[in-house]
C-alpha cells in the first residue's frame, strides 16, 4: 500500500462531531443519519461512489447547506448557532471550481483573505507563499480563464489555506491534477497534518485515502457502512492476499466452476476474477497471481461494483 500515515493517538476530543445528520432533497435522502467523530489532528477520509452523499455532508459541515435533521459541532461550538466563528477556522476546498473569474490569481487570494478580515500585510505575505508552494508564482497576475484545469485546482487548494485554518475540508482535491501536482498536494497536506491541522478529505482515489488518511469512513447511498483505519478495514474484510485471474472467454466457465467447487469467495469485474482465499492452499493450481489486498478491494466489496445511478 506504499507509505502509509504514522499511527495516530486517539486521546483528544472530537473536533468535528455530527449527530444523526440527515439531508433530504425532496424525496431523495442524500445523507441518512450520519454520526461522525473526527479527532483533532487526524486526517479523516470519506470514501464513497458517485452520489454517495460526500459533498452533501461537506456542504452541511461548512454551513453552506442547512441539514434537514441532526446536529453538527465543530471545535466545541454548535454550527447552527455559531456559523461565522466556525467558518473562520475552516479552510474549504470545494469540488466545483468557484474561483472569482473577475479577479486575477493573486487577487483571488487577497480578496478571500479579506472575507476573513485578515490584515493586508499578512494576507499579502501569505498569498505569495501560497502561490509559491502551489507552483503558481508565474501566474500571479494572470486571469482565471488563462489557467489550465490543474492550475485552477491548485489555486482553489491554495485559497483554502489563506486563513491559516485549524481544520481543512477537501472535496476531491486532486481531481484533474497530473501525477507531479498530485504528489505536491499530498506532500503539502502531509506537512499540514504534521503541524496538527485536522483534515476531512472526500475522495474516490483509494491511493490518496490510503496514503493520507488515519481513518476512513466508507459511505454508500448516504449511509456509513464502516469506519476504521485503512489497514484495519483491509484486514477486517479481506484475506491478506487477493488472487487475480485474467480470464479469456473460453476458459472462464471452467474456472468459475472450479472456484465454486472449492467454495471460494470471488468477484468478477472488468474481465478479471478477484478471488479472496482464506489461505494460500485454497488457490493452489489455479492460473493467475497473488497480490496484496488494498483499500480498493474493500471499497468494491462494501459499495458494490456496479455504477450507481
Amino acid at each position: 500500500m506504499g507509505e502509509s500515515p504514522e499511527p495516530f493517538d486517539y486521546v483528544t476530543m472530537a473536533i468535528i462531531r455530527t449527530i444523526n445528520l440527515t439531508k433530504k432533497f425532496r424525496d431523495l435522502v442524500a445523507v441518512d443519519d450520519v454520526s461522525l467523530e473526527i479527532e483533532e489532528g487526524e486526517c479523516f477520509g470519506l470514501l464513497g461512489p458517485n452520489g454517495a452523499g460526500k459533498t452533501s455532508i461537506i456542504r452541511m459541515i461548512t454551513a453552506v447547506s442547512p441539514p434537514t435533521r441532526g446536529e453538527i459541532w465543530v471545535d466545541g461550538r454548535e454550527l447552527k448557532k455559531y456559523p461565522r466563528e466556525v467558518k473562520a477556522i475552516l479552510g474549504v476546498i470545494p469540488q466545483i471550481d468557484n474561483l472569482d473569474e473577475d479577479l486575477t490569481v493573486i487577487q483571488n487570494l487577497l480578496t478571500f483573505a479579506r472575507y476573513f478580515a485578515i490584515p493586508k500585510e499578512v494576507a499579502y505575505q501569505r498569498s505569495v507563499e501560497i502561490l509559491h508552494s502551489m507552483a503558481l508564482k508565474e501566474k500571479r497576475d494572470s486571469r482565471i480563464d488563462e489557467l489550465s484545469g490543474g492550475m485552477k485546482r491548485r489555486l482553489i487548494i491554495g485559497r483554502g489555506l489563506v486563513n491559516a485554518p485549524k481544520i481543512i475540508i477537501l472535496d476531491e482535491p486532486s481531481i484533474g491534477l497530473d501525477p507531479q501536482a498530485r504528489h505536491m498536494v499530498w506532500q503539502t497536506l502531509r506537512e499540514l497534518r504534521n503541524q496538527g491541522i485536522t483534515q476531512l478529505l472526500c475522495t474516490q482515489n483509494m491511493q490518496e485515502a490510503a496514503r493520507l488518511c488515519n481513518r476512513v469512513a466508507i459511505i454508500n447511498r448516504g449511509r456509513i457502512i464502516d469506519i476504521d483505519t485503512p489497514q484495519a478495514l483491509v484486514s477486517r474484510y479481506m484475506s491478506t492476499q487477493v488472487w487475480e485471474i485474467d480470464v479469456t472467454s473460453d476458459e472462464r466457465d471452467s474456472i468459475i466452476r472450479e472456484l465454486e467447487s472449492r467454495q471460494l469467495e470471488f468477484e468478477e469485474f472488468a474481465g478479471i476474477i478477484h478471488v479472496f482465499p482464506k489461505d494460500d492452499s485454497q488457490v493452489e493450481g489455479l492460473p493467475g497471481a497473488a497480490r496484496a489486498a488494498t483499500l480498493e478491494d474493500v471499497f468494491f466489496k462494501l459499495t458494490g461494483r456496479s455504477l450507481v445511478e
Partner: peptide
C-alpha cells in the same frame, strides 16, 4: 455562473 457566492459562503460572511 461563477458560483462566487457559493465560495464566499464558506467564509465568515453569511
Amino acid at each position: 455562473h461563477h458560483y462566487t457566492f457559493d465560495a464566499i459562503l464558506a467564509t465568515p460572511l453569511n
